[in-house]
Nucleic acid binder design. Sequence first.
DNA 1: CAGTGGTCTAGACCACAAA
DNA 2: TTGTGGTCTAGACCACTGC
Lengths: 239, 239
Amino acid sequence: MKINKYKHIYEELAAKMKDGIFQPGELIPSENELAQQYETSRETIRKALTLLSQNGYIQKLRGKGSVVLDTSRAIFPVSGLVSFKELAEQMKGPVTTRVEEFGLIKPEPFLQHQLQCNAKDDTWKVTRTRAFDDERVILDKDFLLKKFIPDLTEEICKDSIYSYIEQELGLTISFAKKEIVVESCTEEDKQYLDLNGFLHVVVVKNYVYLDDASLFQYTESRHRLDKFRFVDFARRQTT
Amino acid sequence: MKINKYKHIYEELAAKMKDGIFQPGELIPSENELAQQYETSRETIRKALTLLSQNGYIQKLRGKGSVVLDTSRAIFPVSGLVSFKELAEQMKGPVTTRVEEFGLIKPEPFLQHQLQCNAKDDTWKVTRTRAFDDERVILDKDFLLKKFIPDLTEEICKDSIYSYIEQELGLTISFAKKEIVVESCTEEDKQYLDLNGFLHVVVVKNYVYLDDASLFQYTESRHRLDKFRFVDFARRQTT
DNA sequence: CAGTGGTCTAGACCACAAA
DNA sequence: TTGTGGTCTAGACCACTGC
């Protein structure tokens, strides 16, 4: 096993819940039992269980044990960093991505502020539409700093920019701030989307950071009102 | 100190960042240094730093140290469980809550499904409007199972239901699933909100769980489009 | 190379729940 | 009282960063 011990245990237990070997409402074996089964220390088991609890698989109850939660109701793996590609894989019906604009620009002041860069920093601008059942309902506008992503092609954008960054470039996306608001439609929205008479769009603004805490991407995802849906699974923090 | 050691360290370090003693971009002392300073073990320090990193205060960098992040940009403490009372405290201008409906009902099938209960379970129904600057822009509909909250009064609803549950009843709210969608206005929305001509509302559906993993509350928070804003701060999970 | 954070261990004591 | 999870310790070795 190259993988960390606690991650391995996490995945094995998570698989047992997905496969129904552990049923919702049941208690999983205690930490001491698991430590014996896996021939490891209790702290390592606890790391795996903490991960399971953070990802919504179990709920730990002091003095009782860890109960299996009903994950069938949770649609997204967990809040936040869900890329369009992951989302598309869960949809039924035809899903297509089309690159509408692609090129290098110099950021104007609004973008400079969002990307925390200056006017000289070359920036990739990618505009894509996402269609479900031949209706264009999402307009994605991506801005990526060239100093982090030197070579980007239209081909890559047709697939998944995230995959390219993580798998080809070996960079690690570590966290993102997300903001959701509703805005009036712009001319661009009217041009690229099948709005069906809607006058507003839901705008998801994403600030994506790399492993080393540097901001490298700003994304606006503009959704037609009736096709927008966001699921979040929040825990209390200081637990 | 009654509080946990690691939580105490967490709060002390967080305060130093809020007060600007640790500046964004700087490295905080290493885990070994902190362990000496606080006369504790490194694992305990690591617990505190993990909390700081999960709450967006720092970013840990292997081989280098932990850098202080710019938290001034984050408006909400962290994703998710922000109650109206917390939200109101951050607003400028007059903020008022008004209880429009209050009483006990028997849940119809839709509610039975949302609350995972049956038709016999008495349920509190509370409808409140929230106004900013004398404009009613949020309609909150709360449904709480009476078996968990036996005594609820209109007085309590005027303040904060959450505070009552946690402080008076001693129950602990542990996590919540949240779903955000846009819906057409209902007659109820038109009656209770100052809609300013908007035809849709942003609906935040909250499923609130207690410490022991039982679902006890379902809430719909209906926001006028132009006054809705949601901020999320997401990390990659398996870190 | 020395110093950093990441993982892991084998103990210990505690607060809590259930019988 | 027994067993649970929560906290804490004092070590150890590793992978990575920087010089």
